Computed example of a mutant assay.
Amino acid sequence: MCVKQKREKKKWNGTKWKKVLNILLKVLGAIVVAFLLFVAAVYTVNKISSHSEKKRLEPYGQHVSVDGKQMNVTIQGKGDETIVILPGFGTASPALDFKPLISELSPYYKVVVVEPFGYGLSDQTEKERSTANIVSEIHEALQSLHIDRYILMGHSISGIYSLDYVNKYANEVRAFVGLDSSVPSLSEQKIDSSDTQPIKWFRDLGFARVQLKLSADPYDELPYDEQTKEQLNILIRKNMYNTTQLNEAESMYSNFKTAEKQTFPPNLPVLFFVQANHPGTDQWIPEHEKLIKDSVHGEMVLLEANHYLYRSHSKEIAEKFMNFMGRIQ
């Protein structure tokens, strides 16, 4: 091959690679533009939908002033004894979420559902989500309503907060009922602010709504009417990944560590409702047993249910709870 032919081949190869490179750049540019348009569409739809849902949100309960902010509390029933219910982590609307259980208990008790800051219709707060702060805020809400003698009932993470609560306010709490409540020895993983920052971007761009759209309905085939389910879904989208709850997630590991030093007072009646088959650990039942081994009145009821057992087994929980309270009178 002569020098001229070599030059022409080299030139042709260079032209070919330039064309390939141009095509690749155009494809890449198209992908980037398409992605940005998709993000913009998700963001816009989320903003419009959030504005529309805000108008359809129906207020419930009553606001009480706590630490200069508004905390939402609902009260149903007029029984002589009072039950105070505390939610698990991330519960979008405690008052509506516990509705099946409230319906079973309210004919016999006064049932109070506290929505901590960042939950339900309560304000958010920038204050550290330590157990001490959360417990103090809940107590302040109850004090403002002149509720000073009650049975404490807590789901999930509220079991950790309740350990501190029943020791601080032992003269007020008549008994504790755990609804698949957390135990100190089975701690959550440590979460830092660097872990929650991407979640905030995910939320602010509107992708939390997409996530919910692709997820199964947690209230499907459960005893909730359509109006309640609609309001629950609005509040799930409103409160999901809010800053207060993310701050609580960051404080969770240290809150579990603090709880390791605590136990229930031996003379406090304790009743646990626990899922019989925990999907993540075989220590769920043994660790609950340890917490009540020194209790004068300590019992555990196993249920064939998931973590949100009060949604599906409210009638059974109410019956066994009332039976338990009748035996410790």
Score class of each variant (00 low, 15 high):
V33C: 08
Y310H: 13
R174Q: 15
P198H: 01
A141F: 07
V84M: 12
D148S: 09
R311V: 00
H146K: 14
R209A: 03
V3A: 14
S144V: 05
I292V: 10
K4T: 12
N247P: 01
A40H: 07
E128Y: 06
F207P: 01
S314A: 15
A249H: 02
K261C: 00
D123H: 14
W12D: 12
E140S: 14
K261M: 02
L205G: 03
K47H: 15
N239V: 06
Q211F: 14
D204Y: 14
G298V: 12
V33M: 07
Y241I: 00
H51L: 11
V84I: 13
Q231E: 09
Y169W: 08
W12N: 11
K320R: 14
L222R: 01
I160Q: 03
A34K: 04
P279E: 07
A259Y: 09
P87V: 08
Y109M: 02
I102E: 07
A95Q: 09
M322Y: 06
Q143E: 15
L21T: 10
M322C: 02
V32C: 05
M325F: 09
L25Y: 13
V173I: 09
I234Q: 01
A318D: 10
M325N: 09
S50A: 14
K190D: 15
F264A: 04
L105W: 09
H146L: 00
Y119V: 03
E172P: 02
W12F: 15
I191D: 05
L152D: 04
K293W: 10
V20L: 15
T258V: 08
G120T: 10
M322W: 02
S193H: 14
A132W: 15
V111E: 01
N239R: 13
V84N: 10
S65W: 12
Y310T: 00
F324Y: 11
Q197E: 09
H51C: 02
K9Q: 14
G159R: 09
D225Q: 11
P116R: 08
E248L: 04
I292R: 02
A208L: 05
I75C: 06
T228G: 03
V39R: 05
W284Y: 09
D217V: 03
A170T: 11
T196A: 00
L57N: 09
M252H: 04
K16V: 13
E299K: 15
V27C: 11
K69D: 10
N22R: 15
D220C: 00
Q189M: 13
D67S: 15
W12L: 14
V84A: 07
A141L: 01
V64A: 07
P87M: 08
T125Y: 05
K290D: 11
V177H: 07
N13K: 15
L303K: 03
F324H: 06
K229A: 01
F98K: 06
R327F: 04
Q283I: 01
N171Y: 12
G61P: 06
Y219N: 01
I151F: 02
E299H: 12
S187N: 09
E230W: 11
D192V: 05
E104V: 01
F176N: 04
D204G: 00
E53L: 12
W17I: 12
N72D: 11
A208W: 11
I102H: 04
V274K: 06
P184C: 04
K9D: 08
A41I: 14
L152G: 04
D220F: 13
K315H: 09
I328M: 00
A141V: 04
V173Q: 04
P266V: 07
L121I: 00
A170D: 13
I147N: 03
